[in-house]
Design a protein around this nucleic acid. Structure first.
Length: 271
DNA sequence: ATAATCACCTGCTCGC
DNA sequence: TGCGAGCAGGTGATTA
């Protein structure tokens, strides 16, 4: 589920319900996520007051004076607020109980996500070091992408999805942005002109911003529990549309695999 | 350093 | 209706 718009939507959704709250208890039913949840996480969190929720790449960060809670939703994770006492279901692995009487519930069927702790004073967390710029900042521009791509021989789609280059561009939005920029996903990253990278950056920013505005592609409601789907899915131009007609020229969209990821594009509109 | 592949897990859809 | 195959929005680790 979560690409950057979903994570940002989650951040905005949960932050008002967390801010000003003290963590009263941590309940871990399943500590085995992508990495084990630290055994002493409860001790670190209990009694701490939450001031804000931040995001870096697709990580959600809750900073405290003595350390930072790091959460990642992986492929299938979600966070939502429910009343304390609400029975947990099959994949509800972690509850963070709050002084408000609600709890933040982490659900993740595939368990590709992570919940970690970074103590203050330690060197930066390895997961957060060496990440590329945020896609919606000025640091991410056509010049930057052009420079980074020189002598790179990977398909431009793989290049765009590399978190060391730029964070937060997952499979859906990489497909969409390349279509809107008119660039074939399998073109070698090092052979694309500066002008075309300027266009690509513009389209990446545009598609991400639009999706955030609409609450992501498939995200379910994190506050209530009555899953509201995101509204962006119906506006996707290529993702999930292999074999269907291009919305721009009517040609049949082709679907291929690129770096193990499903890739859809239009042979006529993308060069 | 770069590129390609593997791995982690569960659930769902598809074809037989 | 059952069953195996293949696939899914991520990304670090491992291999050449």
């Amino acid at each position: 589920m979560p690409e950057l718009p979903e994570v940002e939507t989650t951040r905005r959704g949960i932050e008002p319900h967390l801010r000003g709250n003290t963590i009263t208890r941590l309940v871990v039913r399943q500590p085995r996520l992508r990495w084990p949840i630290p055994a002493d996480l409860g001790a670190a969190l209990t009694g701490s007051a939450i001031e804000r929720v931040e995001r870096r790449a697709k990580y959600l960060l809750v900073p405290f004076a003595h350390g930072t809670l790091i959460m990642h939703l992986g492929m299938s994770g979600s966070l939502r607020l429910v009343p304390i006492g609400q029975p947990a279901e099959k994949h509800d692995h972690v509850d963070i109980e709050l002084s408000s009487g609600q709890l933040l519930r982490y659900t993740d069927p595939r368990r590709f996500g992570a919940i970690l702790w970074q103590a203050s004073g330690e060197p930066g967390h390895p997961l957060l070091e060496n990440l590329g710029p945020e896609p919606l900042t000025d640091a991410f521009d056509g010049d930057y992408l052009f420079q980074r791509s020189r002598r790179r021989n990977v398909p431009v789609k793989s290049f765009l999805m590399d978190g060391h280059v730029v964070v937060g561009v997952g499979n859906i939005y990489a497909n969409e942005a390349l279509f809107s920029a008119g660039i074939r996903p399998d073109r070698s990253a090092g052979k694309i002109s500066r002008e075309r990278y300027v266009r690509l950056v513009d389209e990446v920013k545009r598609v991400l911003a639009r999706s955030i505005k609409q609450g992501g592609t498939t995200l379910r409601n994190f506050v209530g529990g009555d899953g509201k789907p995101g509204y962006f899915r119906q506006q996707l131009l290529v993702y999930g549309r292999g074999g269907e007609a291009c919305r721009q020229c009517e040609a049949i969209l082709v679907e291929v695999r690129l770096g193990q990821r499903s890739t859809v594009y239009c042979r006529r509109c993308q060069r």
